[in-house]
Design a binder for these strands. Structure first.
Lengths: 247, 247
DNA sequence: CAACAACGTGAGCAGTGCTCTTGCGAAGGC
DNA sequence: GCCTTCGCAAGAGCACTGCTCACGTTGTTG
């Protein structure tokens, strides 16, 4: 299984990786719309038709890049989660959010590929589901660890509508997350709202509106943490110097 | 100025409108990526090159559609604002949010055009700024009216970071909005977070996660209203039957 | 009426995704 | 060791795209 069969399969793996690398380069430079199979092949010194031995279509290449992007973003979030072990839950939350934001700002076209308009066919393949869930799982882990340490309050929202309750119960069962129902609901909302904040910044909707991007994002994330039920230690509110070094 | 000069100018206006209509049709049917100048010209019974007398390039056509989409969404939000005059501020807030969501779900490709990945050139023209601001202004109007009626509380967030304060002061001056600073900050965040919620639903990120979309969105919007400082009347929480008829 | 500008036409260029046939060289069974 | 099979690259080609340009036609205006 994991044994390398021969020179042929090894070459195939290498060429596939080279194609993805070059495609990612063009994606980062020009955006998904400008990504061209022929240009990738040209840069790699092969004929365009040869590329179809590795990816059945342009959309399949894009799908591969989508999965890679989800994984890269997920890794960034998980790294922030691991590094912030031990700090107060609200600060951990902000650390994970900032990691997501930083990755998005550093890779705007890849971010647009996964959280912008769904371009290939308008239906995401099944393979993207698991990588796409990694950021959400990282956010959830913050809440889980906070609960373990007894630092998780319950958000004082109104009662959950019945449909939301069944959704929340299913989510709790799937992820084996033994959290209060309002926390899971708040977490789901905060998850999407985080990408609202990040998307607005990356896509330029904050131009001429918000200039102090760093501070505004951090402040808004603190509010999100509160909404989820993560108690914030007073005083550490504006001091994100140690935890989140600038660049 | 407003007098119609002759048959020629009248024809120009009509043809321009016909091109935009057909383009909008193809946009709604297939998405921005599949929109083809030649197909539009073909459908209109003219030669593709003739189309360049009206729009200098494909991107210019798309820009026109973007402005139209911003205006259509803005009108939907403003209509909800006008219709909900007199109801409690939190309910008004939810009504405007639901209007935005409904328009987005009804016009997913147009929504993707304006709030998805920025496709043309990666820099939005200046003409889009004013139409793009209409939804934000509608949300702001809810807070302004609430303040007039003395129904605006102050969100109990931490103190605003200094950079955010200057941003907020500039926004308050530009829009002549005499609101508490934390309200403006919360409003800006809620504005972007609203599009996080809507975008996740339209783009399918809630698939297999949230099924009770209507209830979840309404519940989350109530939380957003609270974050802004709009006091919600208890009891009307889950009853969105009268205010927001299903379809 | 004549000059001009706006407009529609068709050919053409460079580029795209994708298919198909052809030939070559490595992998594996006898 | 030979031979068959299969994976792979090459090249031609199809249908399509955005866009340009020279050419007539036609409404507008001095």
């Amino acid at each position: 299984m994991s044994v390398i069969r021969g020179a042929r399969q090894r070459a195939r793996i290498e060429v596939t990786a080279a194609i993805k690398d070059e495609a990612r380069r063009q994606l980062a430079a020009e955006g998904a719309a400008r990504l061209s199979l022929r240009a990738v092949a040209r840069e790699l010194g092969m004929v365009s038709s040869a590329l179809y031995r590795y990816f059945p279509s342009r959309d399949d290449l894009l799908t591969a890049l989508i999965i890679d992007a989800y994984n890269a973003l997920g890794e960034a979030a998980e790294a922030a989660l691991a590094e912030s072990k031990g700090v107060p839950p609200a600060d951990r939350w902000r650390a994970v959010c900032q990691a997501v934001r930083r990755w998005a700002l550093a890779h705007p076209h890849e971010y647009a590929l996964i959280y912008g308009s769904p371009v290939p066919g308008y239906t995401a393949p099944r393979d993207t589901a698991a990588p796409a869930a990694r950021v959400g799982r990282a956010l959830l882990a913050v809440a889980l660890d906070a609960q373990e340490d007894g630092e998780l309050g319950e958000p004082a929202d109104g009662p959950l509508p019945p449909g939301v309750r069944t959704d929340v119960e299913r989510i709790a069962a799937e992820l084996a997350a033994d959290l209060p129902q309002p926390v899971i609901a708040g977490l789901t909302a905060a998850w999407s709202q985080l990408f609202g904040l990040v998307g607005f910044e990356v896509f330029g909707h904050f131009n001429n509106v918000v200039e102090a991007r760093d501070e505004f994002f951090d402040h808004s994330c603190a509010a999100l943490a509160h909404q989820v039920g993560l108690s914030s230690a007073h005083g550490t509110h504006g001091a994100h110097g140690r935890l989140l070094p600038r660049e």
